[in-house]
Amino acid sequence: MEWTGHSEHLTAAVGMTQVWRPDTTEEAWRLKRQYGTFASYVAGGTWLRTRWESGSSVLPPYLISLDKIAPLQAIQQLESEQEAVELRIGAAVTLAAIESHPLAGGAVPLLGKAVSAVAAPSVRRQATIGGNVMSRSGDLIPALLALDAVIVSYSQGQYERQPLAEWLAGDGGDCDKLTVGFELKQVGGSCWFRKIGRRETFTPSVITIACAYRADSTAGRLLDVRIAVGGAGMAPVRLYEAETAAESGASGASVYAAVRKGIPSVADDYASAAYRRMAAANVIAAELDRAASG
């Protein structure tokens, strides 16, 4: 026997959330520091909104919108001594902007493919790369991992660069940092991106796979293989063992086994962990076999 309040109605009931729209990174960071857990950064808000609606997280009394901070909206080419293009993409750049930007979606095809696989065009016009990554399960993460992307954050007057893989391995508890952008290189060679969803498009991921490699046609081998998987509430990971297997010219069956070992066990009401492993291992093995025989 128990008394039950009906707190699920509370989120809808609170109409008093205040939105800050700072002009600078510093100001945004200060506001967050001031309000702590009573505030949340927000950009497109597409993912956060579903969390608030479902009760997975509570709409805080303060929102700090990143929409007026110019550097966070920019895609810029970094000075680089190498031939490859190096890019910095602001955390609040929308997925639609990345999709259509010649330097981003165009010059980095793996990123372009990944962005197009997220949600639907209307959502992509609002959702941002920062939000996708900060959700820790976004479809862009495997692509950024395969691109060896670096996450740039701001804290107390300092900018910090950290490999995304390293950042993901952390617990995300450091709320004193504001993610301001991502740096990545345009890599030569080939790539593919595959999102296995519950339907053909506008779908949650069942498993998402990103892969980049170079084919050495003279030696008939694959070089610089980068494979990452994510999706569906799973912590995205690089599949280092499978990469090594592929680079050492192992058969599809060995790559298959290595992929299976590397994928975290995640199940939900749609797909079992076993299905996710097999589907990912199948797709990766088949694609790499084809590339090797290519």
């Binding site: 128990e2 008394w3 039950t4 309040g5 009906h6 509370l10 009931a13 109409g15």
Partner: peptide, 18 residues
């Protein structure tokens, strides 16, 4: 008067279940 107030009122209804 508003949908928000109506939702707030719902959350204030106390129900005892078994």
């Amino acid at each position: 008067d508003t949908a928000e107030l109506a939702a707030a009122a719902l959350s204030a209804v106390r129900v005892q279940y078994e």
